[in-house]
Design a protein around this nucleic acid. Sequence first.
DNA 1: CCAGAAATTGGGAGCGCTTCCAAAACCTAG
DNA 2: CTAGGTTTTGGAAGCGCTCCCAATTTCTGG
Lengths: 336, 336
Amino acid sequence: MARTIDELAVLSGVSRATVSRVLNGGSVSAKTRSRVEAVLGETNYRPNLAARSLASGRSNVVGVVMHIDPHLLFQDPYFSQLLQGMSSALADRSAGMMLWLGNRSKEDTLGTILSMGLVDGVVVTANSLDDPLVDGLLASELPTVLVGHRKADRTASYVDVDGVHAADAMTTHLISIGRSRIGYITGMPRNVAAADRLAGYRQAMKRAGLSVADTIVEGDFNTPTGVTGAASLLDRGVDAIFCANDAMALGALETIRARGLRVPEDVALAGFDDLEFAARLDPPLTTVRQGVREQGAEAVRNLFELIEDRSRSPRRVLLPTELVIRQSTVGGGPRT
Amino acid sequence: MARTIDELAVLSGVSRATVSRVLNGGSVSAKTRSRVEAVLGETNYRPNLAARSLASGRSNVVGVVMHIDPHLLFQDPYFSQLLQGMSSALADRSAGMMLWLGNRSKEDTLGTILSMGLVDGVVVTANSLDDPLVDGLLASELPTVLVGHRKADRTASYVDVDGVHAADAMTTHLISIGRSRIGYITGMPRNVAAADRLAGYRQAMKRAGLSVADTIVEGDFNTPTGVTGAASLLDRGVDAIFCANDAMALGALETIRARGLRVPEDVALAGFDDLEFAARLDPPLTTVRQGVREQGAEAVRNLFELIEDRSRSPRRVLLPTELVIRQSTVGGGPRT
DNA sequence: CCAGAAATTGGGAGCGCTTCCAAAACCTAG
DNA sequence: CTAGGTTTTGGAAGCGCTCCCAATTTCTGG
């Protein structure tokens, strides 16, 4: 029941330094190593992280900062999935995770994180176009990887999905099934993903030579704005509605049915995210699936590369998305 | 830009020990204190957590362990909310959170946590009737608070909602609206909350002198078992279905409608959890609301009391629940 | 069998902080 | 003005570990 490395050293008849070497994979003769490991085995010793961290300057703990609207955090599985992905990538390297959710002022959190000297790096969700926390982190010495990205972050490492491309693809799909008056309900104005998706929509519409003069209404990613947004779009006589996320598509569907219109015959409907309920809607919702778990895992891997080689140039990763076509756009389409 | 306490000491012309005292609220003369604080203000020094932790044996970081079925973690906002509650209570004491999700073997995690010497205590979700991790934690020196509880944990500190009482109340409500053949779809067999809710149901049925001979079918908290469970209950001619959670109620609703039955006229339907979508179903779902956030916050507060006074006796807290009655049981009832 | 190179090992100095202890400074009252 | 008590302060010893450096041991080949 040795508690410290010194006790371990005494028990195995070598110096503290040698024990440390076998613990950390230093060069030790096979004979010595096996002797120490024997003792190690029967003593269930665990190195003290604080001491190790103080001495080595590395803790094998990474920080995760999610500054996010609590309301979204609740109902959107995005964060759970992101956490899962990160958590499992972390576990692969037996590293720990310190989590901050956004309930203090951002600057405060920033200070805390930097201070601790406790994390080797940080993964931070960058979903706002201007976020002092992200700026501060990027300006600091601390290796930082963003999940999501802002146009300005050209020099930062980030992991994101290609929202522009995905929204373009969805819009193109809508066009390909013969719709031309395609309404769009946006996400929150200052949200990066929202901006990307909108850009993708505009891009596809433009390429097809379709007007977007009065086809865009502003939403905020929540269901109620889907309800109202759809109402206003229907008044303008659209034949398809593309919502920046599934939650709003849910609202839009309510409105469409309330008016006695059929989906997709009268109005095709598409969302984004492929939340759990999307496949279960009536009709099942055409949407975009993003590998959120994978995104989290990739962010962690990215971060570790940065930690291990601080001089390495930023790595920017765009993960692919998948168009999930269901009956809300293609009536007789494939069942999911 | 002092980085260490020694630099700070030099800058303010006192000893390292004195700086440490003003940092930690030791007794320092007013004059000295203000001098040091002045320096402190213009230097944005942050104590190194690892060093502090090593020297003092306390880290102001608590561990949070959520060993949970990844599938549930995804779609159930329970965990997000729990995290939120804990996170905000933690922020109130400017403490940090180390998070482990359940992706390694439990024993492994346990070892890691205990080893680190890095957390002052741990909050662990105890949702399985037999969980070696929980047993190990409780047996260890580490202050531990459970969220949820097992019958066996008489001597542990925990925070839970009174699931027995809540399920009893819901069942009683169903009875009070004139139903007598009340079917019940259970949660996962070895889950504590599931067991509690089932007990509450049985208790209420027994008190009312109603038979439960063939009214209970086994579910697993997921929607599909709600679908199948409801089918089997309807075959037995029930006039109400109480599901151990909302996700299954969702499935049950599907089945009921597929058979052309009306809710609540033909079959009353009740869930448990009051998830976001519950109020939005057609008809809105009668369910039980639990203060999950509050549960998380309370768990943290509880833990801190334990940490500050290790000799204190375990504190067991049962948080109240709220019956949310909507149209799935009372057709003309209050709109929510 | 021995010099020299290579591999292994132990000694010891810190990492930045808290905290015990004793010295120094300050009060009080006689 | 001084003895005795009370605060306030600084010195110094660690907390458990890593890692540099030098000493020791082991291995080469001539």
